[in-house]
Design a protein around this nucleic acid. Structure first.
Length: 429
RNA sequence: GGUGAGGUGGGUGAGUGGCUGAAACCAACGGUUUGCUAAACCGUCGUACGUGGAAACAUGUACCGAGGGUUCGAAUCCCUCCCUCACCGCCA
C-alpha cells in the first residue's frame, strides 16, 4: 500500500509510475479522489477530536460535581453531554466510512516502479538484464522433454498425482524424490552460508497475514482457501516469513534481517491451460526456497543486487543456462518496485522457464504491515522489504532432466552429488 | 473437543467506574560522580492520527488481546470472538 504522504508530496512520480504500469488517464483520477478523501478525513477528525475533548472535559466536571453533592448542576451538564454524544456518534460513523473508502482506494494502487523499470505492457516488453552469452546447449536427435524422461526413469508420476489429487500435483518417487530433497538442502545450505536465518513457517496463514504481503485482496483467486477454518494455503514462503515482523519496530542495529525458508507452495493457477502447463512447467504444488530481507531504505537496492548475485550463483553451480530479465511496468507484480526474473533454459523444450523472481518492494509491503525501524532521530520509519526465490524447484528439475540427459541416463551436477548420493539417474550408480 | 484460570507499556506486575496513558520494580537510553569496570544519584523512556510550528517542540484524540454494548464518563461492568496456561479427552 502506498503512503498517502508520498502520494501527496511526490504526485508527479506517482503519476509517471502508474502510467508505466499502464494506467489510463481516467484511472489516474483516483489520485485526486484519494487526496480529497484524505482531506475530508482530516477535517472530520479535527472536528471530532474537538467534540470528544469537550465531552471529556464535561464528564470530568460531572464527576467532580457529584462528589461535591451538586446533583442538579451535574444533571444539567449530563443533558448537555448527551447532545454532544449524538454528533460524536454521527461523526465517528462518517470518519469510519471515509477511512474505509480511502483504504479501499489505496488498495487498488500498485507499487510505483523504480525509475529503471522499462516501459511496456506484456512479457515481450521485458528487458534482458543479463543474457546467456555462451551457446545454448543443443541436444542430440531423440532428446526428450522432462515429462517423458520422468516416465522413462520412473521418477515423477504425473498420472498418479492426478489420481490422488488432481492435475498439477506431481508425485515424485525414488531418485526423483531424492533429487527434490537434495535440491532443497543444497539451496538452504547456500542461503545459510550467505547469512540467512533458516525458518520453517506455517504453511497455512490467516487473512491478516495474507493481507500483509498483498496476496489479499488482489490475488485471492490464486490461493487455496480452507473455508472451515478461514485459512489460506501459502502460495510462497514470502507470506508467512515476511509477516513475522508485521506490526513491529525493528531496532535499526538489527537491520538487515535476513531470513530463508523452504516450503511447498500452493497455487490454484486458475485460467492457465495449454502447452504451458505440461509436465512441471506449471503445477499447483511445488517446492521453493525463499530468501527474505528487511532492509534499511538506503541499502535496499544494494541488497537486491546481492540477492541477484546469490541466485545467479546457484544457477551457475547447477551448470544451468540462465538469463535475467528486468521486468517491465506492465509485467511486474502489484506490490513490487523492481523485479528481476530468472529464467532457465530447458533444452529439450527449447524454452526459457521462470525459476526465480527477485524483488524490492520498498515500503509497499512494510506500509501495509507496519514494519518499521527507529532512525537516529528516534523517529519510526518504514523498512524496505525484499524477497526472491532461491530457488523454485519444479522447473529447475525440469531443466536438469532435459539438459543433462544422455545415453547413460541423466547426469547429476557435481555440487548436488553429495546431497543426492548418486551421480546418475538411470545410470549404473 | 470439554472444564477452569487468565490476557495491562520492552519485561515483571499494580489497578473493579471519574484524581490512571496507566503505580512500582527491572531492562534500555542520556547525564553527574568515583582513576577504569562496577555501583550510586538525576533525568528520559509506547504507538498512531489530527492541529500549530521551518524544526525542536507544544497540544488534542484514540489505543490496557480484538470487535460490539451499557454509561455523562470504561483498563475497570455486559456480550461475542481470538489467544495463552492448567487439567481431561483425542492424537503424529
Amino acid at each position: 500500500m502506498l503512503e498517502i504522504q508520498y502520494l501527496r508530496d511526490q504526485k508527479d512520480r506517482v503519476l509517471t509510475g502508474l502510467r508505466k504500469r499502464g494506467f489510463t488517464p481516467e484511472r489516474l483520477e483516483i489520485l485526486d479522489q484519494i487526496v480529497a478523501l484524505d482531506d475530508q478525513r482530516k477535517e472530520i477528525q479535527t472536528r471530532l477530536d474537538a467534540q470528544l475533548n469537550e465531552r471529556n472535559t464535561l464528564s470530568d466536571e460531572i464527576g467532580k460535581l457529584f462528589k461535591q453533592g451538586q446533583t442538579t448542576e451535574a444533571n444539567a451538564l449530563k443533558t448537555k453531554v448527551q447532545t454532544i454524544k449524538e454528533t460524536v456518534e454521527s461523526e465517528e460513523q462518517q470518519l469510519q466510512q471515509v477511512k474505509s473508502d480511502l483504504e479501499n482506494l489505496l488498495l487498488t494502487l500498485p507499487n510505483i516502479p523504480h525509475v529503471s523499470v522499462p516501459d511496456g505492457r506484456t512479457p515481450d516488453d521485458n528487458k534482458i538484464h543479463q543474457a546467456w552469452e555462451a551457446p545454448l546447449p543443443v541436444l542430440p536427435e531423440g532428446a526428450q522433454p522432462h515429462w517423458e524422461l520422468a516416465e522413462k526413469y520412473n521418477i515423477i508420476d504425473f498420472k498418479l498425482g492426478a489420481f490422488i489429487t488432481g492435475s498439477g500435483f506431481p508425485l515424485f518417487r525414488g531418485k526423483g524424490a531424492r533429487l527434490q530433497r537434495a535440491l532443497i538442502n543444497f539451496f538452504l545450505d547456500r542461503a545459510r552460508e550467505a547469512g540467512y536465518e533458516e525458518i520453517q513457517p506455517p504453511l497455512l496463514v490467516n487473512a491478516d497475514t495474507a493481507y500483509g504481503t498483498g496476496q489479499l485482496p488482489d490475488k485471492e483467486a490464486q490461493m487455496y482457501y480452507v473455508e472451515r477454518d478461514d485459512l489460506y494455503l501459502i502460495p510462497t514462503a514470502e507470506v508467512p516469513v515476511t509477516n513475522m515482523y508485521r506490526g513491529q519496530i525493528i531496532p535499526e542495529a538489527s537491520l538487515p534481517v535476513m531470513l530463508t525458508g523452504y516450503t511447498p507452495c500452493f497455487r490454484r493457477e486458475a485460467g492457465s491451460y495449454g502447452a504451458d502447463v505440461k509436465g512441471l512447467n506449471r503445477v499447483h504444488q511445488f517446492d521453493k526456497v525463499e530468501i527474505v530481507r528487511f532492509e534499511h531504505p538506503a541499502n535496499s537496492y544494494a541488497a537486491l543486487e546481492t540477492m541477484v548475485r546469490h541466485v545467479a550463483g546457484l544457477m551457475e553451480s547447477l551448470e544451468l543456462p540462465y538469463r535475467i530479465l528486468h521486468l517491465c511496468g506492465g509485467d511486474m507484480g502489484f506490490t513490487s518496485a523492481l523485479t528481476y526474473d530468472f529464467e532457465v533454459y530447458a533444452a529439450a523444450q527449447q524454452k526459457w522457464l521462470e525459476v526465480s523472481s527477485v524483488s524490492n518492494f520498498e515500503t509497499f509491503q512494510a506500509n501495509r504491515m507496519k514494519v518499521r525501524y527507529r532512525d537516529s532521530q528516534g523517529k519510526t520509519q518504514l523498512v524496505h522489504t525484499l524477497n526472491g526465490s532461491a530457488l523454485a524447484l519444479a522447473r529447475i528439475v525440469a531443466a536438469l532432466l532435459e539438459n543433462n540427459q544422455g545415453e547413460k541416463g541423466i547426469r547429476i551436477p557435481e555440487v548436488l552429488v553429495p546431497y543426492t548420493g548418486f551421480e546418475w539417474i538411470g545410470g549404473d550408480s
